[in-house]
Computed example of a mutant assay.
Amino acid sequence: MIRPLLIALALSTVAGCTTTPSVPRSSAAVAPYRDSADFGGRIAINYSRDGKKESLNGTFTWRQGKTNTDVSLISPTGQTVAVINVTPQSATLTESGKAPKTAPDLDTLTTQALGWSLPVSGLRDWLQGYATDSKGQRFTASPANDNVITRDGWKLEYVSWQDDAAPVPQPKRIDVTRIALGQAVDDMQIRIVIYPPEK
């Protein structure tokens, strides 16, 4: 089933990045970057393919360690429809009722599974409010510094925060738009809503 696969792949492409960010440039920073982090939330993807508008929605859980990332996509009825595990050596996709698919990396896996690559390589950083801008500089999001165009052609807009007044606010909603995809999918927007962290 290509729809849940697309959502899961969009979420998990991030796991290939395991570099530790440099010190943020802004004093009004988000929480410090964490190699190990757990997130949950909702995702909506709107895209055009071959001139046809498509829309996908789901919820997700995200667990990352220093080198591995595990992403689960959950249907509105509460069933896990896809799981992706990414390690430094491979990326594996397991869809409900199907044999796992494995490739050396996530880009190869997306190309094999979809016929085109979905290069969302920064999401591991984006969920925490960090990115690399179009000039290769480290970007740190904050309520006063809430959008950037990344080096690989994505526009990130940090629309809302878990707590705007917190000394180190954490992202709540991120709108992501592909600026210049140049592939089969020629128009793509992703909306991510991150649930508040558990206390």
Rank of each mutant, 00 (worst) to 15 (best):
73 L>F: 14
74 I>S: 13
76 P>D: 05
76 P>H: 05
79 Q>G: 06
79 Q>I: 13
82 A>E: 02
83 V>K: 14
84 I>W: 04
86 V>H: 02
87 T>M: 06
89 Q>V: 09
90 S>D: 14
91 A>P: 08
92 T>F: 11
94 T>F: 03
94 T>D: 02
94 T>A: 10
98 K>W: 10
99 A>L: 11
99 A>N: 11
99 A>P: 04
101 K>W: 10
101 K>D: 07
101 K>M: 12
102 T>A: 06
103 A>Y: 07
105 D>R: 10
105 D>V: 08
105 D>E: 14
105 D>G: 08
107 D>M: 13
110 T>G: 13
111 T>S: 09
112 Q>V: 03
113 A>H: 02
114 L>W: 01
114 L>A: 10
114 L>M: 09
115 G>T: 04
117 S>Q: 14
117 S>N: 15
118 L>W: 09
118 L>R: 05
118 L>A: 10
119 P>W: 11
120 V>C: 13
121 S>D: 14
121 S>M: 12
121 S>Y: 15
122 G>W: 12
122 G>H: 07
123 L>T: 11
123 L>D: 01
124 R>W: 03
124 R>I: 02
124 R>P: 01
125 D>H: 12
126 W>P: 00
126 W>I: 07
128 Q>V: 07
129 G>C: 00
130 Y>H: 09
130 Y>E: 03
132 T>G: 00
134 S>D: 10
135 K>T: 13
135 K>S: 14
136 G>P: 09
137 Q>S: 10
137 Q>T: 08
137 Q>D: 12
138 R>W: 10
138 R>E: 12
140 T>E: 11
140 T>H: 01
141 A>W: 13
142 S>T: 08
143 P>R: 05
144 A>P: 00
145 N>W: 04
145 N>E: 11
145 N>A: 07
147 N>H: 15
147 N>E: 15
147 N>G: 05
148 V>Y: 12
151 R>I: 12
152 D>N: 15
153 G>F: 09
156 L>I: 06
157 E>T: 15
158 Y>Q: 00
160 S>E: 06
161 W>Q: 02
162 Q>K: 03
162 Q>C: 01
163 D>K: 09
164 D>E: 10
165 A>W: 06
165 A>N: 12
166 A>C: 06
167 P>W: 08
168 V>L: 12
168 V>G: 00
169 P>R: 04
169 P>G: 03
170 Q>W: 01
170 Q>Y: 03
173 R>M: 07
175 D>T: 10
175 D>G: 02
175 D>S: 08
176 V>L: 12
176 V>W: 05
176 V>K: 00
178 R>L: 13
179 I>N: 04
179 I>G: 00
179 I>K: 11
